[in-house]
């Protein structure tokens, strides 16, 4: 059976300890977390956890059921099987030698990214997009020398307005 990536959008009670229940469920049952993103929703009593996980169909089914079984979990959506918008934000600190600066600016422009900080020998670039787009810009910037990267992990919402 093939292992697929799934994006789960989990609505939980915004209470201390809830994230640890979820993380504990994953470590205790040997599931993977690839990325994780947590923040309050419009309702301050509810948080949204967006999680990317891997597994074959039966494991993903178990993960969803086990998550839903937690008392503090309100809803679990598998955004892989539903239409959704997904984004990730990334900050890239790239070496900016004078001979590379024009090239970096061109890449930033093409990817509709932004330079948010400039140092004597580096630029910090902010870019959002899908995973593919972010991987592409990283590949292009690599030859100039990437100092550091911070990725936000994926966030996602259903296209459907019901939610």
């Amino acid at each position: 059976m093939s292992e697929d990536k799934h994006i789960l959008s989990i609505l939980v009670d915004n209470q201390p300890g809830v994230l640890s229940r979820i993380a504990g469920l994953f470590s205790g049952r040997g599931y993977n977390i690839e990325s994780l993103c947590v923040a309050e929703t419009i309702d301050p009593a509810v948080s949204r956890i967006t999680m990317v996980t891997m597994g074959h169909a039966q494991i993903i089914e178990q993960i969803k059921k086990q998550l839903f079984k937690l008392i503090n979990v309100i809803k679990v959506h598998d955004l892989t099987t539903e239409k959704s918008i997904q984004r990730e934000l990334i900050l890239i600190k790239v070496y900016a030698k004078s001979e590379h600066r024009a090239e970096i600016l061109r890449i930033v422009d093409i990817f509709r990214a932004k330079i948010v900080d400039v140092g004597p020998d580096h630029y910090t670039i902010e870019v959002t997009g899908t995973e593919d787009k972010l991987d592409a810009i990283i590949t292009l910037l690599k030859p100039m020398g990437i100092k550091n990267i911070a990725r936000s992990g994926r966030i996602a919402l259903l296209r459907d307005s019901k939610q």
Binding site: G17, S20, R21, G24, L25, G28, I71
Partner: peptide, 14 residues
Amino acid sequence: IVGITRPCTKHNYL
């Protein structure tokens, strides 16, 4: 104890 028993209770509270 809430941390310790998280995986072996149905639910717990502090």
